[in-house]
Amino acid sequence: MFLIKDFKGFTVYEKVMFALFLIIQIAVFIYFWKKDGSADWLNIVAGLSGVLCVIMSAKGRLSTFFYGLIQVASYGYISFEHKYYGEVGLQVVFGIFQFVGLYFWIKNMHSDHLTEDPNVQEVDSRSLNVTGWGLTAAITAIIYAIVVYILISRTDAKQPWVDGVATSLSLVGQTLMTLRYKEQWLFWIVINMVSIFLWARGMFQNGGVDAAGISMVTMWVAFLINSVYGYYYWKKLQHVQVNEKY
């Protein structure tokens, strides 16, 4: 089963990074659970599934979409409780993208070069050209304007301008991921920094730290580190994949 086989072929660095992210999420949960009982199981489910999702995505493994479904459901609910409605809407779209992405990826895979098991597969990556970059920038600006307008005029969102940045960039980044472009990771780097600011500022506005806020900031910091690594790894994938399959 690919959910198990996808854990093969990890380097020592990847194993250490993966274990560290998981340990930090568990530690945050235990701390708040013992401190005041404010820790919620949904926080750790969102954090752990998110870490699994982004690490498998960086490795180009199909199981990223399975963990992605769990993450969007749990993170979407947490965002709803904190009135980050742009994030909520985004998770609904991301849920659909998990199935679309699986369809596109499964047709464009090659055997992992780090393991002798031919059943361990990585996705074929590709790059945006100048025209692609121009189109991507224009679409991003249009989506941002629409999202901010909706958040300001139709909701009581706490941080519509920041929320809109994370939402619009995430939609474009997810589309690039689905279509296997390595430049998606540049978008995720910015998205992760904005999301860290969004949740940290939210705690400041609410007058103090809380289990959900710390857990989400920790998750997005892990995502940020993984995004930098993901861009490096996907560039390397272009040099090891057997051929391009569009």
Rank of each mutant, 00 (worst) to 15 (best):
F2V: 07
K5M: 12
D6S: 12
F7M: 07
K15Q: 13
M17G: 03
A19L: 13
F21R: 00
L22F: 14
A27H: 06
F29M: 10
Y31N: 07
F32N: 10
K34A: 15
G37W: 03
G37C: 14
A39K: 02
L42G: 06
I44K: 02
A46Y: 01
S49V: 13
V51F: 08
V51G: 08
L52R: 02
L52G: 01
C53K: 02
C53A: 13
C53R: 04
V54M: 06
M56W: 09
R61F: 13
S63W: 02
T64N: 09
T64G: 06
F65N: 08
Y67P: 03
L69P: 00
A73V: 15
S74G: 03
Y77K: 03
I78T: 02
S79G: 07
E81V: 12
E81R: 15
H82M: 13
H82Q: 11
K83W: 11
Y84W: 06
Y85I: 08
G86L: 12
L90I: 03
L90E: 02
V93Q: 02
I96A: 13
F97Q: 05
F99V: 07
V100G: 00
G101L: 07
L102D: 01
L102H: 14
I106M: 09
K107I: 02
M109K: 11
M109T: 09
H110V: 14
H110L: 12
S111Q: 13
H113E: 09
T115E: 06
P118V: 00
N119H: 11
Q121N: 09
E122L: 11
V123Q: 01
R126M: 08
S127D: 05
L128C: 14
L128S: 01
V130P: 00
T131E: 06
G132W: 08
W133H: 01
G134Y: 14
G134E: 03
G134F: 15
L135H: 01
A138V: 07
T140M: 06
T140C: 12
I142K: 00
I143Q: 01
A145M: 10
V148N: 05
I150R: 05
I150S: 06
L151C: 12
L151N: 04
L151M: 05
I152H: 13
R154Q: 14
D156V: 08
W161L: 14
V165K: 04
A166L: 06
S168G: 14
S170E: 09
L176S: 05
L179Q: 11
Y181E: 07
K182W: 05
K182F: 05
E183Q: 12
Q184W: 00
W185V: 11
L186R: 04
F187L: 15
F187E: 09
V190H: 05
V190T: 05
N192P: 00
M193C: 10
M193G: 15
S195I: 04
F197T: 11
A200P: 08
R201V: 02
G202H: 06
G208E: 09
A211L: 00
G213H: 11
V217P: 04
V217I: 13
M219A: 11
W220K: 08
A222T: 02
I225H: 00
N226Q: 11
N226W: 00
N226T: 12
Y229I: 05
Y229L: 10
Y232G: 05
W234A: 00
K236F: 11
L237R: 04
Q238N: 14
H239E: 15
V242E: 14
N243Q: 10
N243W: 05
